[in-house]
Nucleic acid binder design. Structure first.
Length: 284
DNA sequence: CCTTGCTCGCACTGCAGTGC
DNA sequence: GCACTGCAGTGCGAGCAAGG
């Protein structure tokens, strides 16, 4: 495994304990000689993985194939690694390996497989699927199904896809954001939460305005952080400024947090308040 | 170095409300 | 009836920190 990774690819590596363990072994003795060193070095590749997390990844990667193969489809995340280590400590690896041989992983989530492997009673009874599917991907699936005639409405799609109708509707709204805005959130970084905030801000400011902000932000060097981007969309450029969109008592609330000691902030906020009073939000 | 309790952000559900 | 919207509640996943 080479270490020439893009930021997005690097993030997917550290999210998978088995990949992370392989990466750690690859660099051991060359780029680092301890878990702490590895953690520091990986950060320079834009991969956040604490020494603690690497250590758990290495441990779980040493589990027998009988156990690891159970998660081939469902995948292993860092929490899974932690729970596997706990189960091993409490019950012993032999017992887990024997139990692994009796489990059919087909169609089961990692949570369900883990519960069965650990011998927890009632596994899956309160199961809830967490697909972590980003809104753009979800919307693509929905559109594909529409085109191929798998379903003809969001209700039918929700039943077949195993998600709620509201998620599909929300994903469609996020996918309808201007291309320039979406392009600022490459890979899997456009989450439901961010997407929802962007949808609200677009309603507030209009798609033309947010498109202009997006084009300007894209040209910005150094690249803006996620929070800085959201601040730009909300109309703020200053440092130490935090902006959030919330729902409260049936209303949308735009929440600003900034340094009260900076007199320029008061002027900025007054101007924004004046501007907002003149804005007529688009009907939903 | 290893393990684990705690905390927080986010993804997701379920359901009620609204409009066409 | 259907699509869409709004929101409270629940649980997952990850980071931090402390103790062994």
């Amino acid at each position: 495994m080479n270490l020439n990774l893009t930021p997005d690819a690097g993030q997917s590596v550290v999210d998978n304990p088995l990949h992370l363990a392989a990466l750690y072994r690859t660099g051991y003795g060359k780029r680092w000689n301890s878990l702490r060193e590895a953690s520091k070095q990986l950060l320079s590749f834009n991969m956040r993985a604490s020494a603690n997390r690497i250590q758990q990844a290495v441990k779980v990667s040493e589990f027998p194939d009988e156990i690891l193969n159970l998660f081939r489809q469902a995948g292993i995340v860092n929490r899974t690694a932690r729970e596997l280590i706990r189960a091993k400590n409490e019950q012993g690896l032999d017992r887990l390996t024997i139990r692994a041989g009796t489990i059919d992983p087909a169609g089961k989530s990692r949570t369900q497989i883990l519960s069965l492997l650990c011998g927890n009673e009632g596994a899956g009874s309160s199961y809830r699927a967490y697909t972590n599917e980003r809104p753009i991907v979800l919307n693509e699936r929905y559109r594909d199904g529409l085109r191929s005639g798998l379903w003809s409405s969001t209700r039918e799609a929700a039943e077949v896809m195993g998600v709620t109708q509201s998620r599909i509707a929300e994903a469609a709204m996020v996918a309808a954001l201007p291309e320039e805005v979406q392009a600022l959130f490459p890979g899997q970084s456009l989450t439901s939460a961010i997407g929802w905030q962007l949808v609200q801000l677009t309603k507030l400011r209009g798609s033309r305005a947010v498109r202009e902000v997006a084009i300007e932000a894209r040209a910005s060097i150094p690249r803006l952080s996620r929070q800085q981007l959201m601040n730009r969309f909300a109309g703020l450029k200053g440092k130490g400024v935090d902006v959030k969109v919330k729902r409260a008592a049936g209303r949308l609330v735009l929440e600003f947090h900034c340094d009260a000691d900076d007199p320029a902030n008061e002027t900025r906020l007054s101007m924004i308040a004046m501007w907002l009073r003149d804005v007529k939000p688009n009907a939903r």
